Amino acid sequence: MKRPGAWLTAACLLLLALNLRPLFPSTAILLPELKQALHLSGAQAGYLTTLPVLCMGLFAPFAPRLAQRAGIERTLALVLALIIAGTALRGVLGIAGLFLGTGLAGAGIALGNVLLPSLVKRDFPDRAALMTGLYTMSLVGGAALAAAVTLPLTRSLGNRWDLGLALWAVPGLVALAAWTPIALRASGRPAGGRHILPVEGLRRDRLALAVTLFMGLQSALAYCVLGWMAPMLRDRGLGGTEAGLVTSMSILVQVAACLLTPVVASRCRDQRGLAVLLSASATLALTGMILGPRGAIWPLALIQGVGQGGLFALAVMLIVLRSGDAHVAAHLSSMSQTTGYVLAAGGPLLIGVLHDWTGDFRASTGLVAALGLCTALAGWAAGRNALVRATVVRDRVR
């Protein structure tokens, strides 16, 4: 962090990261109200929770190319603009605005997800673990905040679900105001190393494929939690506010796990055992919340948060640890999130379909168990101590 203004960039980066997850829990916590007001079926609710995850996979490949042309900083300004527009659009035009806005915000989140690890690798190489922990903590903290306050905020506004969703554009406006001076100062030209160069050979590397699978599988589990934990708890008889508080508490625990996991991971000889332990914690606790006694929901939510937050932070940290430089990190991030989030989109969709078929969430436990096992296996492969084999192409820019 010797570059002048690095701490200011770091603070603005954390503010930006804060806006990359409120979309998910703010929709999930209001899902019963949305289903009633807009007459959504269980399948349509599943599509709604799946749509942003799918967009995150479909739009992730564009991030390195945009960064090649405009620079990372200006591309991140575009990220915030898309999130603001999409989040606000969810509150207008009824069901069309809800789906269109969710997809637009999902596209912005996709670009931000890809570029933040590359920015950390480029600007904070000597503090990669700390910065990865801080920005994943900020990212998860935004989700926790949305889970806790969306329903009370909506009720204070006369049960206006449209306002409850659209108001989450306000933190994005704050972040854009802080980030814009950084984006304007940054050069969008290739000179100065502010752009991202192409790489070759990444998709043929087994370690890169393992990192991709680990990102996708833990994401599938994560978005099942973000999209369906609150409805699962309400289905078990908890009130809307209590369900939101349990979800928020679980996500807040993820904040601490996000901060600590990269530090632990960076001190380990490899990360295989850590990946398996975190996978087991997240999976078994979520299964217990669905099938176990109601009195165990709060402690199980705490354990689930530790596992889930740790998995996410480890997945991001593995992108940094397995990359030789910022260019490889950007493309590995793009690859892992393109394939990973398309894979992850199936998780919340299948939960919605299973709920429609069976009338409750008990059938989802088989899906959760399968995701947990596959996540552990992928993490074991991705956790070995090595670098992905990829060649940076320095004599041309696509």
Results as ranks from 00 to 15, higher is better:
Phe24Trp: 12
Gln36Thr: 15
Ser281Val: 10
Ser281His: 00
Thr358Asp: 04
Thr27Pro: 03
Leu76Asn: 13
Val246Ala: 10
Gly352Asn: 11
Leu93Ala: 15
Asp395Thr: 11
Ala183Cys: 11
His331Asp: 05
Leu130Ser: 14
Gly188Phe: 02
Leu18Ser: 07
Arg204Phe: 01
Ala330Ser: 15
Leu93His: 14
Gly112Ile: 11
Gly347His: 10
Pro4Asn: 07
Gly158Leu: 10
Val393Ser: 04
Cys55Ile: 04
Ala144Arg: 04
Leu173Ile: 14
Gly347Met: 01
Arg127Gly: 10
Ala178Ser: 08
Arg269Ser: 12
Ala166Leu: 05
Thr375Gln: 03
Met137Arg: 00
Ala210Trp: 02
Gln254Trp: 08
Thr241His: 10
Ala296Asn: 03
Met289Gly: 03
Ile303Tyr: 13
Leu139Lys: 08
Val255His: 04
Ala169Arg: 12
Ala37Trp: 00
Val388Cys: 04
Pro231Gln: 09
Val79Ile: 01
Arg398Lys: 05
Gly5Leu: 03
Leu130Pro: 00
Gly106Ser: 12
Met317Phe: 15
Pro32Gly: 12
Thr375Ile: 06
Leu8Ile: 15
Arg3Thr: 14
Ser187Asn: 08
Val149Arg: 06
Thr9Asn: 07
His327Arg: 04
Leu350Phe: 10
Asp235Tyr: 01
Thr180Ala: 15
Met137Thr: 13
Arg389Val: 14
Arg185Ser: 11
Pro152Leu: 12
Ile251Tyr: 05
Leu153Glu: 01
Val53His: 09
Leu373Ser: 04
Leu221His: 15
Leu207Thr: 13
Arg74Pro: 09
Arg204Gly: 15
Val211Cys: 14
Thr75Lys: 12
Leu13Ile: 03
Asn159Pro: 01
Arg127His: 15
